[in-house]
Design a protein around this nucleic acid. Structure first.
Lengths: 107, 107
DNA sequence: CGTGTAAGGAATTCTGACACG
DNA sequence: CGTGTAAGGAATTCTGACACG
């Protein structure tokens, strides 16, 4: 179950401890769209463990001299790549259905 | 990996939302040893997803008219039962080692 | 016993800005 | 660009206590 990993429940101070990043850095990375926390009614940020992992990755790339906008571009490219792969997969499935199930309607 | 499930990172207000319990109830259940959150340096409670699940169980049992000390006793019994089973298991493993490895010392 | 609530205070977080490099 | 910091304020949480049933 990935549900725990994706649930936004961790306050920024705890994220700071988990990642070793300052809260200033975390807020800045949010500004640059590298993480997208949820907000409580009062406006406090809530992060997921997935976000924590993303932030650690960001930290590593920053250490390697990469800039936030580069990391952002890279993420966007990855997203496109993944959705492209999924579309190909779906089309393949469709083809297989045509091949083998043309005369047998889905139950 | 159960690591996400066991990590204490969720503040009490969020736990309240996740469980439907009031913060008062959650604090009381802690007092009765039904959950054991960690504390930040400043003293704020931090719960795990496991704690959240425990609290939901507690809520169900309370609805069934069970009292906190009964739930606590039940938990203690379960712990003992589990450690007893683990001991038996260990002893069985030991016996098997005697049977088959008596003359072959562990590598 | 279990839970709501008002009280006073402390810890946590928020935003916008200035600074530095 | 990326990050520290002081500023002022708001949201969150804490404890101990009184109330009710």
């Amino acid at each position: 179950m990935v549900s725990y990993r994706e649930k936004k429940v961790i306050p920024i101070g705890t994220v700071s401890e988990l990642t070793g990043l300052s809260v200033r850095q975390i807020r800045y990375y949010e500004e640059r769209k590298l993480v997208v926390p949820e907000r409580s009614k009062g406006g406090t940020r809530k992060f997921s463990f997935e976000d924590v992992d993303m932030l650690v990755e960001v930290a590593n790339k920053m250490e390697d001299g990469m800039q936030t906008y580069e990391i952002h571009k890279m993420r966007e490219r990855e997203k496109k790549q993944i959705s492209k792969e999924k579309m190909r997969e779906e089309m393949l499935k469709g083809q297989l259905n045509v091949q083998f199930n043309r005369h047998r309607p889905p139950s």
